[in-house]
């Protein structure tokens, strides 16, 4: 049985994962990899935004490939958990009580 192909995130993108479009670019590479299974290697990744994580998660759900992450740093892992189980958006700004000054 052959090992799945491995895709190195830091090589394709950068060590800081920021844009949704970058996650889409990553998945374009993943989808072109031969075979049904792919390992996504996050070694060297230093930071991640929620926007990237959310796009990655949604693309992974839609992919026909079996995608497995390896060497995933905490920053990516916890954000993927957060986007997999998005919480309720409690109000940050209390619009009812917001004092407005006319300049």
């Amino acid at each position: 049985m052959t090992s799945p192909e491995r895709v190195h995130v830091k090589t394709i993108l950068f060590e800081d994962l920021i844009m949704r479009l970058s996650a889409a670019d990553l998945f374009e590479v993943i989808e072109r990899v031969p075979g049904d299974a792919v390992e996504v290697d996050f070694e060297g990744v230093k930071s991640c935004t929620r926007s990237f994580a959310d796009e990655y998660y949604m693309r992974k759900l839609r992919s026909a490939k079996a995608v497995r992450e390896v060497n995933m740093p905490t920053c990516v892992h916890q954000l993927l958990m957060a986007v997999a189980h998005p919480g309720k958006k409690d109000q940050v700004i209390d619009i009812e009580k917001l004092k407005i000054t006319v300049v």
Binding site: I93, D94, K97, L98, K99, I100, T101, V102, V103
Partner: peptide, 9 residues
């Protein structure tokens, strides 16, 4: 503290 401002002019 939360404050809003309308910049009308």
């Amino acid at each position: 503290v939360q404050e809003g401002y309308e910049l009308n002019d």
